[in-house]
Design a protein around this nucleic acid. Structure first.
Lengths: 199, 199, 199, 199
DNA sequence: AATGAATGAGGATTCATTCAT
DNA sequence: GATGAATGAATCCTCATTCAT
């Protein structure tokens, strides 16, 4: 009654249920780009637009703001976990993967700052969970006497990651990677090649 | 109040030109509090309200969103400069002041991340300028052979500050200070007492 | 579920044409419950969900919002008609059935208020028709000199029903029945036991 | 940043703070009309449009949906109270005023049905309060042995009003008044002239 | 110079309806 | 015939900014 769904006009085409999986993937990919460009507060409408779907589709797949952010991060975290679980994984190698993600997306950085102070990423429980998974993955790679390079406790690990995330600024991926590496160097921690984990 | 705009009541009185300076200070103070509580994205209306002035006054003093943020930071930066210029200033002492500001306000942290990527604080030029002033202040205190504790270049100074800012999370000032200190320790850099500079 | 559309899962299976009748009944039953709980403005999607069918099925059986409401009422009205046609039917007895339906579902009340003024139930013609059928059923039971208890015309019958419907408020079925009975009492009209007609 | 307030285009004119009181009145008047035409669920945007103001103004004056509805009813209720408090007030006279309001606006009817079942008018407390005020006003006019015409308790008063509200349907004010009067007659209760109270 | 009401664009979210499968 | 994903218009609400007073 209150809705006028453009009765007879041409609709832009309904690609059907088959598109569901593809749409979800497109949304996550779009969100990743948008987050990288505009941060976690970017309008959701932009994500839907870039994914080439209607707003409703976004809400069908992700009930709220945090769900889509979590989905984006889920993939990042999973990569870190796989990297840590791989045969012959080293702390340096996994940190390289972590570093790549830090440099690639503001979303990943936001994950580490989800303390509720800022308005972003409200799903504390969820953010906490993702953060914990990164921590567990990294600990698994700690050398036995766990020393990073300087004397340390396991807790220092995530602190170090947070510190590096603070150093990651700059307009380009290259610049951000450069600064991240400089940060690790300042911490006296060796990191492997900065790249995504293609497991 | 919203319910009954009471348009007939006496206007709170125009306190005249004399109030201008006081209003500006009140706005900056209010903004500082609001930023600390809600982050840099907080509604401007809340700042005006807390300052006890109309919205228009805010715009009279600060042409846009970034101007008020810059004004808040101006005071912080000025403190750092004064601390660095004081008789017998040491790098550790000034870093203590910097650390206090980092732990105290999200605004100050935002300053270091003003690369336009995130939605906050767009005034690059302005942010750059403030950031540079902090850098200059810190350099002035560098020991002659400038070594922080580990081998370093002067540029590492601001990188270190950025890194510590990344570590500063948590709901309370105490928690944030604790983490900031842990971060400096991890960098092997000694900092003096964490407190504002009351010059 | 929204989180993981699991597009690869087996579709719940197309139960074939045989299920059509069952689906229709399930939809009507679901609608009856939903209307009772949330009123006539409840989202259609909820009805389909509770019926355990897809949205499309709802639209196959009922072209629009009003059609499903009418279908729900159709059963109520039919009960009233059967009660009135039964051997030894009395006005009091039929009014008891009517009263039960009034207390049971907001939808039935809405029927009497379908004048287009409110946003609910626009199908005037349809509502009119249903309303007329109730009226005819009641008239058939009118005692010969048709007096309800006070002097009256046949038109007063439906007016009285509408009046009682106005009295039917309250969170529970019991409360609503209590008020309905009080209303009839105030009108000086005797009603039989308040219950559905199991013809 | 995310807002484009039509930078340089001509704004439709800001009639200034002086308009505040007028705007509030215009909003209430507009709401009264809209409610009468479309019921309490009508879009708020329509109210703002009819009042000739922006959406924001509506929200400035009325924080939520219920506030504007309450404001509309407030005037109705106040009229009833004044009518009851007037010199020589009679129950019949006050019921005439109540009846006029019932016939005039769906909003007033909704007040009596604010039991939370339907989605309308969520402010129970507020609705309750308004309803109670009507009740108190009517009781004040009850003849000493309180009999309405038939034996009754004071509680029957509001029940009777609710019943009449149920009878009030029809597309025109005249038709609705006609039915309301028929309803009172059926209850054996005498009402005075149906008109607003111009106190 | 101060006030704070007005403006209205924009973002979030919901849901009726269509339609590919 | 059934499924349920897709669509997008419409509504709610917020807030940056302007401007009459």
């Amino acid at each position: 009654m209150t809705q006028h769904p453009t009765p007879d006009e041409r609709r832009p085409a309904n690609r059907g249920p088959k598109a569901a999986a593809g749409n979800r993937a497109a949304l996550v990919a779009a969100a990743r780009e948008i987050y990288a460009e505009h941060g976690l507060d970017a309008p959701l409408s932009g994500i839907a637009r870039r994914a080439g779907v209607g707003q409703g589709v976004l809400y069908r797949h992700f009930p709220d703001r945090d769900a889509i952010a979590a989905a984006v991060l889920e993939e990042n975290v999973r990569q870190v976990e796989r990297a840590a679980a791989a045969e012959g994984a080293t702390l340096a190698g996994v940190l390289g993967v972590v570093t790549w993600h830090l440099a690639q997306s503001a979303a990943f950085i936001g994950l580490l700052h989800a303390d509720g102070t800022s308005g972003r990423f409200h799903a504390h429980a969820c953010a906490r969970d993702l953060s914990d998974r990164v921590e567990r993955a990294l600990r698994r790679c700690l050398p036995d006497g766990h020393r990073l390079g300087a004397p340390d406790t396991p807790d220092d690990l995530m602190l170090a990651v947070a510190m590096v995330s603070g150093a990651v600024t700059g307009p380009t991926q290259e610049e951000r990677e450069r600064r991240a590496l400089a940060a690790w160097r300042l911490l006296g921690i060796t990191v492997g090649p900065v790249r995504p984990y293609e497991g």
